[in-house]
Design a binder for these strands. Structure first.
Lengths: 164, 164
DNA sequence: TGGTCTTTTATGAAAATGCATGCTACTAAT
DNA sequence: ATTAGTAGCATGCATTTTCATAAAAGACCA
């Protein structure tokens, strides 16, 4: 819409100087993510569950037996952060650590019964919330948007380690 | 990573049992944002600039004289976090605090010369990076995507914010 | 077998963040 | 003017995250 399409020179006066960030893809992505996530965080607060805890539980819901590093990657956290988060979640009886029979370096994380109870309620709320969000945006093709986002994610997975 | 892929029923083979989060809009948004931002953070690290510092400078670049709360909102941070971040940025001679002549409660933030120098280099890098990202995704209509994201952002502003 | 390199998780000190609250300044109503 | 209410910023403490590094196990190779 509007601006950005008008040519450069004389148009500059006609286009009010927007902030850089308001046309910066990385910012728009971050802000959109933040805005919709913040809505759901209200649900989490009411349930007394911290955001990173929810992320771990939601990840484990679909893929039990994740490793510490795997969870860190999935939850967009650093590995030491995940280790300490898991310390708290073990303390709160949401998950437990199990040794990997094949590789003794690896620690596999499994939800406790309590963890599963908690996540099941939250998963229902999350799906409901997602539906509400999409309902507010009838112009958005959810499937297409998700495909697009997965494309952005996938095409950048050049190894899951720190880029030099 | 590992298994968990072994199908449960024959139908499961047709529809691979995805993790919940892999089809969850909020997660895909967060992950896409994280992935592309992380790329740019490499640039920031090389420049010795922390991520929140970059966000403040980038915001000020297009809109000088922001308030503390305005910056917190723009940078997706809480107000006390912003106050402390600004303490450090003042200490590092990137910005300065100025009183607002109309309202003595308000503190206006202005970049120093050094701040402007730093941000100008980073803005150039950011634009270059954005171009690269979009170049990797020829299937994505940048204008349409940005419009979509702005829509998501705008339609959720049920908070107190400029009516703009 | 022994040495070296890599991978995986944990730890510890320092830095940043979140939350509640305090304080000052403006606003509105009486 | 007085009071009450609100807005904007700062502060203190507890919690969390980060950064660098350690420790332990597996992989590779001579």
């Amino acid at each position: 819409m509007v601006a950005a399409t008008i040519s450069v020179q004389s148009a500059a006066a006609a286009v009010p100087a927007q902030r850089f960030i308001d046309d910066y893809l990385l910012y728009l992505l971050a802000r959109a993510s933040h805005v919709v996530s913040t809505e759901f965080h209200t649900v989490l607060r009411r349930a007394g569950v911290q955001v990173p805890v929810w992320r771990v539980l939601a990840t484990l819901a679909g893929s039990p037996g994740e490793t510490v590093s795997g969870l860190a990657d999935a939850c967009l956290l650093q590995q030491p952060t995940m280790t300490k988060l898991l310390d708290r979640m073990v303390r709160d009886n949401l998950v437990k650590r199990l040794p990997d029979p094949k590789d003794r370096r690896v620690v596999r994380i499994q939800m406790t019964t309590r963890g599963e109870t908690v996540v099941n309620e939250l998963l229902a709320s999350a799906k409901k919330h997602e539906t509400e969000v999409l309902a507010r945006h009838p112009d958005i093709d959810a499937t297409a948007l998700k495909t697009l986002l997965r494309g952005m994610i996938g095409r950048h997975r050049r190894g899951k380690r720190l880029p030099g």
